[in-house]
Design a protein around this nucleic acid. Structure first.
Lengths: 196, 196
DNA sequence: CCTACCGATCGGTAGG
DNA sequence: CCTACCGATCGGTAGG
């Protein structure tokens, strides 16, 4: 279906070039039609962008919900590490991640409200997944007593930092940084009695 | 001097709107001249951008060098905390920080090489400042034995994450996140014998 | 430093 | 879904 092709092409162009830097001709070329034909499916460039944003938001939430399946029957540390790695990898190496990164960090003014909402929904979803794991860790004495939002916000800040750095470093360096961050994060939150 | 006014106006516009989204008319308006008059001082839009980039890079390095003065005669933890706060605050609340953030994270293709170079120089400078402090911390047994680049890269990743998040949260929330990140970072790197 | 203007490209429309 | 075209805006130039 052409409409879906336009959304897919828009996602790739917007993720790679940004909003202003993507022309309707770019999208049309990728779909294999002429620019004016886009208007049979969408009323404006803004409308295309908003549909892409909508799809990305929905896909992200679904993708995140899938994380819970991976983290059964593992130690607290392994569960946290798994969510950490899954999320960083997804954000670093998928087109949706690139789109999400670009537009949550530098939203065009006219879409700022909708984009902020998507960001906050996503963070809420991540905290819904990771929060209970941290809480259980504290309850069982594996994690030192800290405020839950200290744990979740630091967790999130490290992820934000890592997928920013994806813009500069080669994959090997990134993997090293990812390992180092998680290592020090875990050393910081583990209960003193667990050291060894 | 008009040339300096153009550089200053360019800095503000590029930082706020990005490269493509800043027109030469925007810059000229801010300076108080007409667009063609810009060409008495610069040969192209690219030339203006590159001069702005050059200035920002130079200012950043000078600013970072000033950090060393703040960190005399303090404990290792206080020194690290001070550099952390100074750097995050500077990147979050200055125009140079906004410029630096935007263009190191999403460089226009035609400037990618120069921008990457500026980023790497800056990181090198930060590591030059913070590296010896970490090393001394390990040597004196205040910081647990870790690889130096594990310390510096995690330190840098947290800073990257925080000044990304500046785009979403109000100042109060940011200050809380900044505190939480440093707290857990320090817990992660301090020697076990220092716990209390 | 200005007015006047250029070719190119943009988002979008007319009309079929 | 196309060709042909619009008004606006862009970076940049001519000429004074």
């Amino acid at each position: 279906m052409t409409e879906q092709k336009i959304i897919d092409a828009g996602l790739e162009c917007f993720a790679q070039y940004g909003y202003q830097n993507t022309s309707l001709s770019d999208i049309a070329d990728k779909v294999g039609i002429k620019k004016p034909s886009l208007y049979n499916h969408f009323s404006s460039k803004e409308a295309i962008f908003l549909r892409v944003l909508e799809e990305v938001a929905q896909k992200e939430l679904e993708h995140l919900k899938g994380f819970t399946e991976y983290t059964q029957d593992r130690s607290i540390k392994e569960q946290i590490h798994e969510v950490f790695n899954l999320y960083v990898d997804h954000m670093s190496y998928s087109t949706e991640g690139a789109f999400f990164k670009r537009f949550t960090f530098f939203p065009p003014e006219e879409f700022a409200d909708q984009i902020l909402q998507v960001f906050l929904n996503t963070e809420e979803q991540v905290i819904k997944i990771i929060g209970p794991i941290f809480q259980k860790g504290m309850d069982t004495g594996v994690i030192r007593p800290l405020q839950l939002n200290e744990l979740t916000s630091t967790f999130y800040t490290m992820i934000d930092g890592l997928f920013l750095e994806e813009n500069f470093y080669d994959r090997e360096t990134l993997v090293e940084r990812q390992k180092a961050s998680f290592k020090i994060f875990w050393l910081g939150i583990q209960a003193a009695s667990q050291e060894g």
